[in-house]
């Protein structure tokens, strides 16, 4: 079963300068992802970036992933 820590590592490895927190029970996961790669991108484009990094894993290992994507600036404003 996939652990939240594993998903955190996958995303951080694929996304420049990402800070990631993931919680989950092995089936459903929730991630908060902060990365400068999200600057000047729409929410759809930000989520697409994360999906791209996870690639085939989204089809197999990860059943359900909720995510919130933030630029470093947004994260600073929201205290994340």
């Amino acid at each position: 079963m996939v652990q939240p820590e594993q998903i955190k590592q996958w995303i951080e490895a694929g996304l420049d300068g990402a800070r990631v927190t993931v919680v989950g029970d092995g089936h459903h996961f929730e991630a908060v992802i902060v990365s400068p790669a999200f600057d000047d991108k729409s929410m759809v484009q930000q989520h697409q970036l994360v999906y791209q990094v996870l690639g085939e894993k989204m089809k197999e290992e990860i059943h359900a992933l909720s995510m919130r994507t933030l630029t470093p600036e947004q994260a600073a404003q929201q205290g994340e």
Binding site: M43, V44, H47, Y51, M58, K59, S66, M67, R68
Partner: peptide
């Protein structure tokens, strides 16, 4: 949509997002 999950919402033919984005 180059988007690996369902649900997907479209308004006037434009892809708006999945559940997380709709919620936000």
């Amino acid at each position: 949509s180059n988007w690996p999950t369902i649900p997907q919402l479209y308004i006037n033919g434009e892809f708006i997002g999945g559940c997380d984005i709709i919620t936000e």
